[in-house]
Simulated assay, not measured.
Amino acid sequence: MAGQFDGRGVIVTGAGSGIGRAAALAFAAQGARVLAADIDAKGADGVVREIEGAGGVAVAVVGDLGEQSVVDEVVRTAVERCGGVDVLVNNAGIMDRMSAVADVTDAEWERVLRVNLTAPFLLTRAVLPHMLAAGRGAIVNTASEAGLRGSAAGAAYTASKHGLVGLTKSLAVMYRRQGIRANAIAPGGTATGIVVDADQAAHGPAALGPHFVNLGRMAQPEEQAAAILFLASDAASDINGVVLPVDDGWSAV
């Protein structure tokens, strides 16, 4: 395998399925050495086998990225097995129950924010010293339509994705002079198999109503991955702090 990411070390979180799996496979097809991080061992190991079976280089790290010890293992393994961290894709995330603020439990709030916002922060903080030492790096975060509007998810998920957009923009401003770029995609409806466990009779889902309908077609994970690869590539060398909707125009409605 050889291509635009030949020899570069790439971390992809949530790599065991959906958008993360598609991105991991696409980076590997372009010559990257991929670290596939996921809480699901079967999914992470499966994508590594696919990459290796196609002649690529990959390694899996399994664990909850909301835990600092797992983050440390991911970065250490990427340096040792992938030769460094040239690209970080913070893709792992979970949905909420579409709960309105008055109905959000502490457990729902804390878990969604931990996975969707704190984990990307922890991993970004951990890779930055390596990128700064190299004088370059690309960070791509998977945000959401819920990071652009208030009508695409529940309170916890919406807050987490708005926070991730803010983190992306802050990184872009603070580290642009050091050769580090940070961008995000904002997917619309995508065929990832994620099931939303929501009580349709509760206030949140009822209030969202038709606003939660993706008026465009359902995207495939590979389409989201293509946008991630572009933002991480040298072709996007002057693109920094951008949140790119990949949603068939849903954000324009």
Results as ranks from 00 to 15, higher is better:
Ala32Gln: 09
Ala232Leu: 06
Ile185Tyr: 12
Arg76Pro: 00
Ala146Thr: 09
Leu117Gln: 03
Gly179Trp: 01
Phe121Arg: 05
Ala78Cys: 11
Val70Arg: 01
Asp247Lys: 02
Glu110Cys: 00
Gly53Thr: 07
Thr158His: 07
Val213His: 06
Ala207Met: 13
Arg8Tyr: 05
Ala184Gln: 07
Gly46Cys: 07
Asn91Asp: 14
Asp6Arg: 10
Ala44Phe: 06
Ala26Met: 15
Glu223Asp: 04
Ala191Leu: 13
Ala201Glu: 15
Arg114Tyr: 02
Val195Leu: 10
Phe27Val: 07
Gly188Tyr: 03
Thr118His: 06
Val85Cys: 08
Ile239Gly: 02
Val71Phe: 04
His203Ser: 14
Gly63Tyr: 12
Thr190Lys: 06
Ala23Glu: 13
Gln4Pro: 00
Ala100Glu: 12
Ala235Ser: 12
Arg81Trp: 01
Ala15Pro: 01
Ala207His: 10
Gln30Pro: 06
Gly209Glu: 07
Val115Ser: 03
Ala23Lys: 13
Ala152Ile: 00
Ala37Glu: 04
Gly150Leu: 10
Thr13Lys: 00
Leu164Glu: 09
Lys161Glu: 08
Ala22Leu: 10
Val10Glu: 02
Gly150Gln: 07
Leu229Gly: 01
Ala2Asp: 14
Ile180Ser: 08
Gly188Ala: 07
Gly7Met: 06
Ala60Trp: 12
Leu88Glu: 03
Met174Lys: 02
Leu215Met: 10
Lys169Gln: 15
Gln224Asn: 13
Gln68Met: 09
Ile11Gln: 05
Thr192Glu: 12
Gly154Ser: 11
Arg149Met: 14
Gly137Asp: 06
Ala159Trp: 02
Gly56Ile: 05
Ala191Thr: 00
Ile11Phe: 03
Leu117Met: 12
Asn141Ser: 14
Val70Ile: 15
Val213Met: 09
Gly31Ile: 03
Arg8Met: 13
Gly66Ile: 13
Gly14Val: 09
Arg21Asn: 08
His203Tyr: 11
